[in-house]
Write a protein that binds this DNA or RNA. Structure first.
Lengths: 152, 152
DNA sequence: GTGATTTTTTGACTTAAGTCAATTTTTAAG
DNA sequence: CTTAAAAATTGACTTAAGTCAAAAAATCAC
């Protein structure tokens, strides 16, 4: 486990190797929020940015190696290199776009379309993620996902 | 119409009075993305931040008055007052949280729960929005929403 | 105000996906 | 390797919500 939800997220990780998952607990079940593979950043966004607890856990699904950037060091960069703050702001703009697309993808699609969309969005790693975790990510029952996979 | 999707969003509006809706077109139908009332900011986030076209339209649902902030003027503020860039970055952090919650709310709830959640989140304006627009916002059929409203 | 158009409501029917339970397969532990 | 535990699959059944069509209500244009 990389991050427990009862802790403030003070590190942002850049994955060198392996696979991580962010999730939270709802009605006693783990609900996947997103997955991260090689060359991607992972943290608990609201916790990291606002330095307060949030509901998200981060776990390694595979043996993983990652660089770690402490929030204080990042703030140092922001303080001393204004371009960093601008870069961060622009990156968030594109991240918004992805989230808005995800919202759309969730709202108006069948379970099969959700899974297809997932396989595209996570084309490099989707086959390494256990079925149950994918199902909770998509908000569908694991049985349903199993049936979708069967018919292809 | 405040913003057409074939145009880059160069203004961010702060609503003085009235009601606006952001939406996009999918399969020939208007799908509501969000609603904004008094004392709220509205723009097309990715378009505004990255100065490129996006899919969102913005319309007034009621006769509306709003202040307008041009993106160039905002950049002037960013350039001359570093605190502004930081403020913007932190605000986005909290906005992320709201979007993540909305994703959760969409993934694991019945149509009725979605509507209840909507009425809470938009408690100040929900009663002024036509049924069809609410239905497309929630990703449910207008007939379903009509039936949900009936049984309360 | 009157007629036309759009929106909402209602009913009947269909379907996608959930639930529950049992079985099989996979993974982990000793 | 063997056993135990967890995860995935399969089948039978249920249900929430979608679709289609028609009627009623609300809105708009003249």
């Amino acid at each position: 486990m990389i991050l427990n939800a009862d802790t403030v997220c003070t590190e942002s990780y850049f994955i060198r190797k392996g696979l991580l998952r962010t999730y939270f607990i709802k009605d006693g079940k783990e609900i996947s929020e997103y997955f991260c593979g090689i060359d991607e950043w992972v943290n608990s966004p609201r916790s990291f940015i606002q330095r307060k607890k949030d509901i998200y856990f981060i776990d390694a699904i595979e043996k993983t190696e990652a660089y770690s950037l402490n929030v204080n060091d990042l703030v140092y960069l922001f303080d001393n290199f204004p371009i960093m703050e601008r870069y961060s702001r622009l990156s968030m703009g594109s991240f918004f776009g992805h989230m808005m697309e995800r919202i759309t993808s969730i709202r108006f699609t069948t379970a099969k379309e959700k899974y297809d969309h997932f396989c595209q969005a996570y084309s490099h790693i989707y086959h390494r993620i256990p079925l149950g975790m994918v199902a909770s990510y998509l908000g569908i029952a694991p049985e349903t996902l199993s049936r979708i996979r069967k018919q292809r």
